[in-house]
Design a protein around this nucleic acid. Sequence first.
DNA 1: GTTCATTGTTGACCATAGTCACATTTGGCC
DNA 2: GGCCAAATGTGACTATGGTCAACAATGAAC
Lengths: 209, 209
Amino acid sequence: MSTPAAEVSRRARKKDETRTRIFRAAVALFREKGFEATTVDEITERADVAKGTFFNYFPRKESVLGYLSELQLAEVEALAEEMLAAQGPVRRKLIELLQRTARVYEEDPELSRFVVQESMKRAHTPSDDLHVHWHRLLAQLIRQGQEAGEFRREAPVDRAVSVLGSVYMGTVFMWLCCRKGTSGCEEAGFPLREELAARISLVLDGLAA
Amino acid sequence: MSTPAAEVSRRARKKDETRTRIFRAAVALFREKGFEATTVDEITERADVAKGTFFNYFPRKESVLGYLSELQLAEVEALAEEMLAAQGPVRRKLIELLQRTARVYEEDPELSRFVVQESMKRAHTPSDDLHVHWHRLLAQLIRQGQEAGEFRREAPVDRAVSVLGSVYMGTVFMWLCCRKGTSGCEEAGFPLREELAARISLVLDGLAA
DNA sequence: GTTCATTGTTGACCATAGTCACATTTGGCC
DNA sequence: GGCCAAATGTGACTATGGTCAACAATGAAC
């Protein structure tokens, strides 16, 4: 073919395969022995590539976590569109969206702690496409609420998104750090989805009397 | 003396001196060349101690940042007490407290980014005395607001503190990442104290109509 | 099938955070 | 002063994340 073979040239395929192999090996090891305890050497050994190859695909060890959260966010994107299109009070849709998004962390909280930490580092750099997109989706939902007369129109949408985002991230991260079994926390922590709903409700209703 | 010499034995003094010398050298270097670009070797060289000594006082390079934020928080503590005792609407006191607390980050935003990042890592572990204390101070202020009839009594104090804390941290961190000159952000960012006040107000008044 | 630029792979190499067994200092006790 | 246990200091050493110059595979053009 003389065209650049729209993403299916042998090269592109091999490249994708290699990235996936490295990614899979890395995540598997992270789950088995923890993020910090896993070395890049172990990852490349399991993925059957040289060490240098790892850094061709992921500039830093932590970048694997970034890629993981990209995949996770992609899954949630469909959900967000669904919520935007759904009927019913925006308040309920907002809370349900965030609750269902948070579910992914419940699968592997230990690893998620590092994923979220990495996310937070990048979350606020305006050049991060991932979070810009997420921000935009939330913004649409808020605007929907304003148009429906459910939310106050004076509140700037961007500010509202930032506040809700902070509360979402803060809640998730606290839950990840406070679960039973986490070092420095023997007590049972709190139920993530319930607390998330409660805190978002608090923001919606306001603390003032 | 036969008593343990209430913290002023020669040993204790020397220990303190050494810790301070290491701390000062570290912070000076962080400001000069950035946190990541500074090596532990450089720090110990400037402080005139062996490398191992550094790790006697700070288990990890990042711990220096933790100690720095302890010192900063201690300064702010007096301010918090002052606010608790002051007259006037709790809303205003709360906003002023957070605004004035945030000021410390404006002095050296570049370094503060790492300080705050480190803080966030520890912020949510229940065993961190520093943040427990901060949490308690905020809680007292909120309770004051409830008793004055300014804040809703149904809202659990702990939840309110967590929400306000998340918004505070999120705002500060976003500002630190989005200032003019930060990589990936040419635009001017936003004025920290104004945005902080606006977001806290949003939480107090609620987003719902 | 030969050539060649481009893209991808490799592993020896480097920098540095963090460890540890040993040396030194301290201060209480006789 | 001389002794000792505990606290503190030391720097050679290790482990590991990350770099890079050389090398190999690829595929387009002829």
